[in-house]
């Protein structure tokens, strides 16, 4: 059975990516199971989709804990614990990352023996409307890595799953998918069908007897204030607002008040400061800044500048 997990963010077309791949398998005569998994969280929040395909009816269900292929549509998910990218990844797994960085860099960074393949990001994405293409690109690449999906089956699947799109968007998505499909030619068939999960030798669950705990502990109550600041919603960001302090008028009641996420505070010197740990990158601040002193920079470029010490 092929077990494939797609990781991305809400709004990147991950659910559709899973369905395209599922349909492509189905077109090739496989039995298929595909589903998205998302919490009630939002656009920009981590989510994933999975696809199983086999020649016989599939009885496994739910989360894939023994993946053959893990597709990471958004590299900024790597440090996000909730994304749980590396769940069940072994030396037999193939990791496909949508990233400008090299496979070696990722192998080291992730400290993994898995086969890592990078799908170079097309261009710097500055137009957020282009984001839905990410899913289709990843699907195109994944189809080639599997080696059992023809170009024709992929196209039929794309046309089926994207039938609601207008002609121009459909063409853009088809182009993206095929460019990725072609780019992966050298890796065709690198993903192998995983074996059944053996009952002969397995790691037993460490079950425990839940002890009784009094209600003051065991009720879903929170006794500390503002614990949400521990959630780093800054990781949702694809575009980063950057303040040009030379042009900032210090009219903080504009940006600081209008930031939906309370992520712009006012420094002691009266200047605004963006809390990048929590800024989700909505860019409301850039849109409302009276002197236009806030610029939007693609997150991976901003991160590069930061790493280079130029920020």
């Amino acid at each position: 059975m092929y077990r494939i997990r797609f990781h991305g963010r809400g709004g990147q077309g991950i659910k559709t990516a899973g369905r395209i791949l599922g349909t492509a398998f189905f077109e090739e005569g496989f039995e298929v199971q595909d589903a998205p998994i998302y919490g009630a969280e939002r656009r920009g929040a981590p989510m994933f989709a999975y696809v199983r395909a086999a020649r016989a009816p599939i009885q496994e269900r739910g989360v894939i804990t023994h993946p053959d292929l893990v597709v990471v549509a958004d590299e900024t998910l790597v440090p996000v614990p909730a994304a749980n990218l590396m769940l069940g990844v072994t030396a037999d797994t193939v990791l496909l990352l949508n990233s400008g960085e090299t496979p070696d860099t990722w192998r080291q960074r992730l400290n993994t023996g898995a086969t890592v393949i990078a799908l170079p990001v097309a261009d710097a994405i500055t137009d957020r409307a282009a984001l839905p293409h990410i899913g289709t690109r990843c699907t195109g690449a994944a189809a080639r890595l599997l080696g059992v999906i023809s170009r024709a089956a992929l196209e039929r699947a794309l046309r089926t799953e994207l039938r609601a799109l207008d002609d121009a968007s459909l063409k853009a998505n088809l182009d993206e998918a095929f460019r990725a499909f072609d780019a992966m030619a050298a890796h065709e068939g690198v993903v192998h069908e995983g074996a059944a999960i053996s009952a002969r030798a397995y790691e037993a669950p460490d079950w425990t007897d839940l002890p009784f705990e009094p209600a003051r502990v065991a009720a879903p109550d929170i006794f500390a204030p503002a614990t949400s600041v521990q959630v780093r919603t800054g990781l949702w960001r694809t575009m980063r607002p950057v303040i040009d302090y030379a042009h900032c008028h210090r009219c903080v009641w504009v940006c600081s008040t209008l930031c939906p996420d309370s992520a712009i505070h006012v420094r002691a010197d009266g200047a605004p400061e963006i809390d990048y740990e929590h800024c989700k990158g909505c860019l409301v601040c850039a849109a409302v800044c009276p002197p236009h002193a806030i610029q939007a920079v693609p997150e991976h470029e901003a991160a590069k500048i930061e790493a280079g010490g130029a920020g």
């Binding site: 919490g39 009630a40 969280e41 939002r42 656009r43 920009g44 929040a45 204030p225 503002a226 614990t227 949400s228 600041v229 521990q230 959630v231 780093r232 919603t233 949702w236 903080v252 009641w253 600081s256 008040t257 209008l258 930031c259 939906p260 996420d261 309370s262 992520a263 505070h265 006012v266 809390d275 740990e277 929590h278 989700k280 990158g281 909505c282 860019l283 409301v284």
Partner: peptide, 23 residues
């Protein structure tokens, strides 16, 4: 500009409801 409401909520980026609520 006290921002009593903590950051880090799962509301969508650009949420007009959250913008009103924190104010």
């Amino acid at each position: 500009s006290t921002h009593l409401l903590g950051t880090g909520t799962p509301m969508c980026a650009g949420c007009g409801g959250l913008e009103a609520l924190h104010q």
